[in-house]
Nucleic acid binder design. Sequence first.
DNA 1: CGTGAAATATGTATCGT
DNA 2: ACGATACATATTTCACG
Lengths: 161, 161
Amino acid sequence: MTFYFMDAIDRRILDQLQRNSSLTNQALADEIGLSPSACLKRVNRLRDAGIIEQEVALLNPDALGQCLHMVVEVTMERDNKSLYQRFLTTALSAPEVKQCYQVTGECDFVLIVTVADLDEYDSFCDRVLYGDDNLRKFRTLLSRKRHKFDTSVPMESLRST
Amino acid sequence: MTFYFMDAIDRRILDQLQRNSSLTNQALADEIGLSPSACLKRVNRLRDAGIIEQEVALLNPDALGQCLHMVVEVTMERDNKSLYQRFLTTALSAPEVKQCYQVTGECDFVLIVTVADLDEYDSFCDRVLYGDDNLRKFRTLLSRKRHKFDTSVPMESLRST
DNA sequence: CGTGAAATATGTATCGT
DNA sequence: ACGATACATATTTCACG
């Protein structure tokens, strides 16, 4: 990522686009109080700099059919870098794994896994979890409902340089 | 949400937009093999029907300053609907709570909480967790790194009606 | 669903601060 | 270095077949 000086205007642009990226450049410029061309230049710079990573459509869960979310807590046997890396490579490439957090505490990784049904979850466990001989234990929490899903990040925590 | 019959073309449109919603309608129409007008009509219908809930920009974590993710497991005292609802109302309105899953298993809720620093996390705990007298216990897993964050949903699991 | 024309939006060049 | 205006290009949108 190229070095980038982010000012208050950039933060306001990001704040908007995090909530709604389907705004036209004109509407965004109006919101921010900038001319459309100046606004567009900033948005493109933020994109080129890799600060805006992607723009995606979030689908309504009610529009989804059978769709189960699992919270999977993974505890490794040995805390070894290359063994961790081996697990990560497998886990991150599994399409069922939507999120992966490396944590400190009573376990080592927390995965958010999304599958259509329990058969698919079994297949995931066989491929990713049972196959790793450094994986000591895992615990699955089956989600009955995802009440909130907010991809935004508070603007105070955005680096200014 | 209004009733909606979704066909294979709609699913391919959603599949694309879940990955990249910054495509122009023309580029999307090309991908799908539709005329721009037909494509636009479908996208607007999917939006109006609430299947496309929102379009957002995802920011690069490396562009963020201090930004801590916590996995918080919450266990309630009594499994009572209105007490659960009271907790949910508080938790969902807290801006630090980015995700909330109601689960079955060893605990009742799993929250993904994002804060700038530990002071902010303390404030969150005081406001949302310690304040609820039906909350029996919570466990915090501090994330050192978010290795993966994928907002997409597999298209096989999209309801066809 | 496709075509084509009118309405909008985006991108660029240039100038001013 | 940044923003505004204006113009050229591209895209969206709508009526009609």
